[in-house]
Design a protein around this nucleic acid. Structure first.
Length: 580
DNA sequence: CTTAGGG
DNA sequence: CCCTAAG
């Protein structure tokens, strides 16, 4: 099988001078004259040898190219072109061409490459390589899709684009192949196009575009991650965003400017146009540490991941975007409410839910938003998860949340808390198994509708951070006595079935704390008590039991085990001994 | 998903 | 409480 291919050679040309210099016409640029890089037509024999193309073949190609040239002017319907590409499978030719490509070592100096690129921009008016492409095709009023722009040009232009895309020359003249190649390259490397491609026919694209265009106008400089969507519309010069394709295999924390992988192999890439890279999905924690802006970007990314795209559910995202405009110091909660809500007040509530179990609330949200589907829910959930944490940060940094809350706020809060606790205690002592305290009651359905409760001194307390009531503690202890420490899920099922909050992890944590408390409270007796009498008045009996159980489970900390041996007498007063 | 441990 | 790593 033989194939005619175009090959680029240096003037020094190692191949017979039989070809036709097609480069200038192909690239439709007079400047090409001095350019040493030219196209030669050669034939690739079955054994891989190169044979000068015959005149007929040359003519053939010329016609082909002519055809392409004319086609270049036809900027009319890009979608059609796209379609044809999509439908066209790789021709058998392609394979051979690829192999030949390997054989022919193209040599192109950097300068040449530069020239090529320069020409490229000239010859491909609506190429996405040009940041102004939006303006050029802006007449349509639509946001041009970069790949489409690429597709408009013929093989010659495609070749140029190819080079621009892959950073190397191509010997392939097959228009379709080039197109596909470019498309693939873009798809794989440039998330912009990914999005574009995937949702090309999706009406949501339009929505997206509307949103982003609206957004872009006044949006601050966008992080590439978020820029992606915007790029689609505006082709932001600064950020060729790369929407993470959400390859689960994402690798370590890479900067957004890391090199991307291109299937056909890439050499030097024009960094300007290659700015878009695949980026790794940051971890939640990472996000939390980031500034608001970046956090939001994260949400964007999440939502605009292929999954959502595939389902054509991007609405949440568009809704989210506006949030960006909210001043960081302000109550993002409210804003988020509006934007996300599109529909509702529910959103903020949801957002307040603890990350580990937002599902229920999300479902509730779904009820309010019938239009949202499962995937959307997931995404929303995720986004909200991020968001919530972020909001927390808004209210007060994590540090504040913990340190400040515990040490400074508590004193003020102490009184209230104490009162409440006392009432609880009373009930306990009465043998009344308090199902739930006041806090609890607020919990299940409407739970933390109020994000924070301002306290006397301007402190903020989170509602959804439920203090452990004595009853809960007792249940916990009892549960441990029954099931043994470590079987938290069991305990949760048995003793905490009615407490929708309190995950097994919570139980575990609490137990850990109890353990610590039970063994550690001896030494600082007076000091601690006097200073923080209100913090957590766990009755001694409970502590004793905790200690007991701990000993039984060999959970006793080595050093502390001897700290309080004297209390042993009381240990028998409980029901637990029989169980274990 | 559950458990265990660090933050 | 939150997060993550393991099983």
């Amino acid at each position: 099988m033989e194939t005619v291919v175009g090959v680029e050679w240096n003037d020094e040309g190692k191949v017979e001078e039989n070809g036709v210099d097609k480069s200038s016409s192909a690239l439709s640029s007079p400047k090409q004259i001095a350019d040493p890089v030219v196209y030669k037509l050669v034939r690739v024999e079955g054994d891989g040898r190169l044979v000068p193309a015959t005149d007929d073949e040359v003519m053939e190609v010329e016609d082909f190219l002519e055809d392409e040239k004319s086609e270049m002017h036809d900027v009319a319907n890009t979608e059609q072109t796209m379609g044809s590409i999509g439908n066209e499978g790789p021709s058998s030719e392609k394979i051979l061409l690829e192999s030949s490509e390997g054989l022919l070592k193209t040599k192109t100096s950097e300068a040449d490459a530069a020239k090529q690129n320069a020409q490229l921009e000239e010859s491909v008016p609506s190429s996405s390589l040009n940041d102004n492409h939006i303006d050029q095709s802006g007449g349509t009023g639509e946001c041009p899709n970069p790949p489409d722009g690429m597709m408009e040009s013929g093989s010659s232009a495609s070749a140029a684009v190819f080079k621009a895309t892959f950073g190397r020359e191509t010997t392939v003249k097959d228009k379709l192949w080039l197109k596909r190649r470019i498309a693939m390259g873009l798809t794989n490397s440039c998330d912009i196009s990914t999005t574009t491609f995937t949702i090309k026919d999706n009406k949501l694209v339009k929505k997206d575009e509307e949103e982003c265009s609206k957004d872009v106008d006044d949006s601050f400089t966008q992080d590439p991650a978020v820029g992606a969507a915007d790029v689609n519309c505006k082709g932001s010069p600064t950020s060729h965003g790369s929407q993470s394709e959400d390859h689960q295999s994402g690798s370590g924390k890479k900067s957004r400017n890391n090199s991307m992988e291109i299937d056909s192999g890439s050499e030097h890439l024009n960094t300007e146009q290659r700015a878009a890279k695949r980026i790794r999905k940051p971890t939640k924690r990472y996000i939390e540490e980031l500034s608001e802006v970046e956090s939001r970007d994260y949400s964007q990314k999440l939502i605009s991941s292929p999954k959502s795209v595939g389902l054509g559910q991007i609405s949440p995202r568009s809704c989210l975007r506006p949030v960006k405009n909210v001043p960081s110091d302000g109550r993002t909660v409210v804003t988020r409410l509006d934007s996300l809500g599109g529909s509702g007040v529910q959103v903020p509530y949801v957002s307040r839910v603890r990350r580990s179990r937002p599902r229920k609330n999300v479902m509730a949200l779904m009820k309010f938003n019938p239009s949202d589907m499962g995937m959307a829910a997931k995404l929303v959930k995720k986004a909200l998860g991020v968001r919530s944490s972020q909001t927390d940060d808004d209210i007060g940094s994590k540090v504040l949340k913990r340190r400040y809350t515990d040490q400074i706020q508590q004193p003020f809060f102490a009184e209230l808390e104490k009162e409440r606790q006392n009432s609880v205690m009373g009930r306990i002592e009465r043998g009344e198994n308090l199902g739930r305290s006041q806090e609890d009651s607020s919990g299940d359905n409407s739970d933390d509708n109020v994000v924070t409760v301002p306290t006397a001194k301007g402190g903020m307390r989170r509602k959804h951070h439920r203090a452990w009531t004595l009853g809960e503690v007792m249940k916990l202890v009892e549960g441990v006595s029954k099931c043994g420490a470590g079987r938290w899920s069991e305990i949760k099922r048995l003793a905490f079935a009615s407490y929708s909050y309190r995950t097994s992890v919570d139980l575990k944590d609490k137990w850990r704390n109890l353990l610590k408390a039970s063994f550690a409270q001896a030494p600082p007796d007076d000091g601690m008590n006097s200073r923080k009498p209100t913090s957590m008045p766990i009755p001694e009996p409970i502590l004793v039991r905790v200690r007991e159980l701990a000993e039984m489970n060999a959970q006793v900390p080595p050093n502390l085990s001897s700290s309080k041996p004297s209390v042993g007498s009381r240990n028998m007063h409980e029901t637990k001994s029989g169980y274990l």
